[in-house]
């Protein structure tokens, strides 16, 4: 009893501290840093959403970039002012039913999540019957198909030209607000009976099914929630950047999220949050590795992409030395139950 109250109090305290920190950051930091904070929030959402499928439900899915693309384009097309649409679609006019639509950010984000979740169910129905690496390949293929389709549907997505001038609604409160909602949602889901059923599927499918858990229904459920949040995060990203094109949503994007999830630990909520922030900040902080470095006596030529090598090495080390992730406590308490 005391245990649960203490956890709730700690969570509340952490939330208050986070809000104050965000408030101060928003007031005193420059645009570049605020943008990194925004990105961190978006990556928290993405990391948790991927962890729900790959960590808690134990399904190896690599389709995140695809769901993000769907969300990003939904938000872009729904929030863009009508005049801006005309400017963007000079090559071929936009489909008439989208030409005169302009909605607020919140409904656009919700639409992004729902369309993405709907697509998740549609894709999930056939591919979730596959296991492990087959599932990974199928979902990876799905993400690539989305990208190729978006490149070629000129009158819907403006194709390879991309979309410019998407209104910048995303600020610290949006990106972190969504991140907090995701943390709450995933935590609450995992503590409940459905979340435990997800973990049971991860532990042993045969036993889970023998205990009456409908594997297909629960896998699709987990997949739909994850794609919902991936879609919303994609929408936030589109609105943060202001410019999107299909090539943004390549496998490398999914890889970045996977990196966050593995470093933070599969099935670790706190781990994912911390790792999302650390990885996003490091991605920027390590930018000097891509440029040439002058050590005084010797000059090292810059190699673009050098910082990714650092992350890859860290990832390899983690997988070899600490499979459970950097943030894992030795004894997991997430599953322990405190009587109310």
């Amino acid at each position: 009893m005391r245990d649960k109250q203490r956890t709730d109090l700690a969570a509340l305290l952490a939330l208050v501290c986070a809000v104050v920190a965000l408030f101060l950051a928003n007031k005193y930091l420059d645009d570049y840093k605020i943008r990194i904070i925004n990105l961190s929030g978006i990556y928290v959402t993405l990391g948790l959403s991927m962890n729900l499928i790959n960590g808690f439900t134990g399904l190896f899915s690599l389709g995140h970039a695809g769901f993000m693309a769907v969300g990003a384009y939904t938000v872009a097309l729904l929030t863009m002012p009508i005049s801006m649409k005309e400017m963007n679609f000079f090559f071929q006019p936009i489909v008439p039913w989208l030409a005169n639509v302009e909605v607020g950010f919140l409904p656009a984000l919700l639409a992004a999540g729902l369309i993405s979740a709907f697509l998740g169910v549609l894709i999930g129905a056939p591919v979730l019957r596959l296991r492990d690496d087959y599932l990974a390949i199928a979902t990876l293929g799905f993400a690539e198909i989305i990208r190729v389709v978006f490149t070629n549907t000129q009158s819907l997505t403006n194709g390879a030209l991309g979309l410019k001038g998407i209104p910048n609604y995303t600020n610290i409160w949006w990106s972190w607000g969504v991140a907090f909602i995701t943390v709450w949602f995933v935590t609450s889901l995992i503590r409940g009976s459905y979340g435990k059923a997800f973990m049971a599927i991860r532990e042993d499918e045969v036993a889970a099914q023998a205990m009456g858990i409908n594997l297909f229904k629960h896998k699709v459920m987990s997949f739909a929630f994850a794609s919902f949040f991936a879609g919303v995060a994609g929408g936030l990203l589109a609105s943060l950047l202001g410019t999107i094109d299909p090539n943004m949503f390549r496998i490398t994007l999914t890889f970045n999220i996977l990196l966050i999830v593995v470093l933070g630990g599969l099935s670790r909520i706190t781990g994912t949050v911390i790792s999302a922030v650390v990885v996003t900040v490091m991605m920027e902080a390590l930018r000097f590795l891509d440029e040439s470095i002058n050590l005084g006596f010797i000059e090292i030529k810059g190699v673009p992409g050098m910082r990714m090598v650092v992350f890859s090495i860290i990832l390899i080390l983690v997988v070899i030395v600490r499979k459970a992730g950097l943030m894992t406590r030795l004894k997991g308490r997430e599953s322990s139950y405190a009587e109310n």
Binding site: S188, G192, K196, M199, A207, M211, S336
Partner: peptide
């Protein structure tokens, strides 16, 4: 067994099939 889960959760998951509430009311 669901080996990485707690002893209590193992038994608790056994009751999941009798749950009538939806996933949203659980969240």
């Amino acid at each position: 067994l669901f080996s990485e889960l707690s002893v209590l959760d193992n038994v608790f998951i056994g009751s999941h099939l009798r749950l009538r509430s939806s996933v949203f009311s659980s969240v």
